[in-house]
């Protein structure tokens, strides 16, 4: 290509892009997309399906032929009723929606805390996701690679699971539950499941470290399963008296707003959750719920 031609072409491309931006801006102004939706009172599958539909359908996040990595919480050797792991029916429904949207593959994985095969089995996620058509994988230690975190304040780099970097779409799908370090564990903390090495180390200065990690990877979509929530003795639980069933799913693209909303299910305020405030300040999303565009739908109404 001649230099002149190249310059011409780049100029034209630049113009086109800015034109598209303007156009896009106008579209946005007409109908600003929702930051997140909250769906209440339905089965786990109904809740996630409705949530994704309200966000514009899975086709908005997953294009034909793309590879999707779905990361539920499968951390513990606990049953779905004990609410320590993401709801298996909800996971299966997301898998189905991704495949229906034309995903080439949907891979489900998590780096567990208890023995991985126990967790995958008892959580019910392995069988449910496989049945829905996902490939359920266990973490392979040699597939972590060191990733630089340019925006990290304390963590400058950390080994992350290669699939997260290689796949086209990343869906973060935590369960909402009690956790002593931050009061509750939600989308931000769920990202620890793709971290290699001795991740317990990041509990020291947790509220900065967890935001650092989240600057490295941005999920395409975050879905918080709050069908069952563990309100005490988390994140492991074990006592059914500590489980409440609010039957809620929160999904969207503003991960800070989503976590900020989810804490209200526990009777807390995002203002008091340090990492949410940190994430807001560092521009990862909106923590002030009065300034987000969201929608609440009650399926029982």
């Amino acid at each position: 290509m001649e230099r002149r031609e190249f310059l011409k072409k780049s100029a034209a491309t630049g113009l086109l892009i800015s034109a598209a931006d303007v156009l896009n801006y106008k579209l946005l102004a007409q109908e600003a997309p929702l930051d997140f939706v909250v769906i209440k009172n339905g089965s786990p599958a109904q809740l996630v399906r409705k949530a994704v539909e309200e966000l514009g359908g899975m086709g908005k996040f997953v294009s034909k032929g793309q590879a999707v990595l779905l990361k539920p919480n499968i951390g513990w050797d606990r049953t779905p009723e004990q609410a320590a792991n993401t709801n298996p029916e909800a996971v299966a429904e997301v898998v189905k929606m991704c495949l229906d949207a034309g995903a080439k593959r949907v891979r489900v994985l998590d780096r567990t805390c208890n023995q991985s095969r126990r967790c995958y089995q008892r959580s019910g996620i392995e069988s449910a996701a496989k049945k829905a058509g996902a490939e359920v994988r266990h973490i392979v230690d040699s597939r972590f690679s060191e990733v630089n975190i340019p925006e990290g304040e304390l963590l400058k780099s950390w080994p992350l699971y290669r699939d997260v970097l290689e796949f086209d779409v990343f869906i973060n799908m935590p369960i909402a539950k009690h956790h002593t370090i931050s009061g509750i564990t939600l989308g931000f903390k769920n990202m620890m499941g793709i971290m290699g090495d001795d991740r317990g180390k990041i509990h020291k200065n947790f509220h900065t470290n967890i935001v650092d990690i989240n600057t490295a990877i941005k999920p395409t979509l975050t879905i918080i399963d709050a069908y069952r929530i563990l309100v005490r003795n988390g994140p492991t639980g074990g006592n059914l008296d500590d489980v409440e069933i609010p039957k809620v799913v929160i999904a969207g693209t503003d991960r800070v707003a989503i976590d900020a909303y989810a804490v209200t299910l526990f009777g807390k305020d995002a203002k008091d959750i340090e990492y949410i405030q940190n994430a807001h300040k560092r521009g990862l999303g909106q923590a002030d719920l009065s300034r987000v565009k969201m929608k609440e739908i009650d399926l029982s109404a």
Binding site: T180, I181, H203, F206, T236
Partner: peptide, 11 residues
């Protein structure tokens, strides 16, 4: 400083 990894894992 807070840490709590032990408490988190206590089954």
């Amino acid at each position: 400083q807070d840490c709590l990894v032990c408490e988190e894992h206590c089954p």
